[in-house]
């Protein structure tokens, strides 16, 4: 069985971010593995161990994303591949999905592709579903548990978390899944894992290696600028009172005045 996990680095979400006068952001240099991908990478390693298979960690991006690949290797992925080419600079989710799908086709024997639920920086998941569509594979999003995976029978059964409840779906392989944090406890790299990852040679595949057509990488969307969040109006009013009952009554009065009750 061959499982591929797709990841990238994102700015640390705990870092303070300020928008500059020209509408750009100083992203800082504290890049971390996209938080959702820690679950995805762990799941890829757990599955390859359980099924005596192979796990590949893949990224599409500049060498800024090398650390995400090393993290994947350090916790047990067998190989890492980075896809990058000047032609991908400025591409949007469609071009990104085109490149990921092409890399998966080039790997050839892939049974399962795993993504984290979304990218924490640009706050989107559209590329995940677009990879599935470009591959023509089924998409099982928001997976909280893999109930069964039978590689010989080409079958996977998962629990998906939806707004309406937990959906249990069975599908044929190959498939694309995205995972939420219920799926596992993320693995952390061991000292030996980190040493091994540091020494790994990570191949870089170009647009030409993947046979990517420049027209397919043309962006259809553009990021124009960033803005600060509107400030929340006013400051907090602390409800005072001698007893909890008195405070409760005053608060309910305020909420009725605000028309939220």
């Amino acid at each position: 069985m061959h499982v591929v996990v797709v990841t990238k680095n994102t700015p640390d979400t705990a870092a303070t971010v300020t928008v500059k006068g020209d509408g750009t952001i100083d992203w800082g240099d504290s890049l971390v593995v996209n938080p959702w991908d820690e679950y995805a990478i762990t799941e890829a390693v757990l599955l390859k161990e359980a099924h005596s298979g192979k796990a590949t960690v893949l990224t599409v991006g500049t060498d800024e994303h090398q650390e995400a690949l090393k993290h994947g290797l350090a916790i047990g992925c067998d190989q890492a591949i980075r896809v990058w080419d000047g032609a991908l600079d400025g591409c949007d989710s469609l071009g990104y999905a085109e490149a990921v799908a092409a890399a998966i086709r080039k790997l050839g024997d892939v049974d399962l592709v795993i993504f984290g639920r979304e990218l924490a920086d640009i706050a989107t998941d559209q590329h995940v579903y677009q990879v599935a569509r470009k591959l023509g594979w089924t998409m099982l999003g928001y997976v909280a548990k893999i109930q069964a995976l039978d590689v010989a029978a080409r079958s996977i059964t998962v629990n998906r978390l939806t707004e309406y409840g937990t959906q249990t779906v069975r599908s044929t392989l190959p498939a694309v899944i995205s995972v939420v944090k219920d799926i596992n406890e993320p693995k952390y790299p061991t000292f030996i894992g980190i040493r091994k990852a540091a020494k790994a040679e990570i191949p870089v595949w170009s647009a030409a290696d993947l046979g990517l057509d420049a027209a397919a990488l043309q962006p259809r969307t553009q990021q124009l600028r960033y803005q600060e969040l509107p400030k929340r109006e006013g400051t907090v009013e602390i409800i005072e009172g001698a007893t909890a009952q008195e405070k409760a009554a005053k608060l309910i009065d305020r909420l009725i005045e605000e028309k939220v009750l």
């Binding site: 979400t13 952001i25 600028r225 960033y226 969040l229």
Partner: peptide, 20 residues
């Protein structure tokens, strides 16, 4: 179409547009 989307964990807003 031009849109505003909260990004980076809702800490900033991104203004984006369709160009295609």
């Amino acid at each position: 179409l031009q849109a505003v989307r909260p990004v980076l964990g809702g800490k900033v807003l991104s203004v984006e547009a369709i160009t295609g």
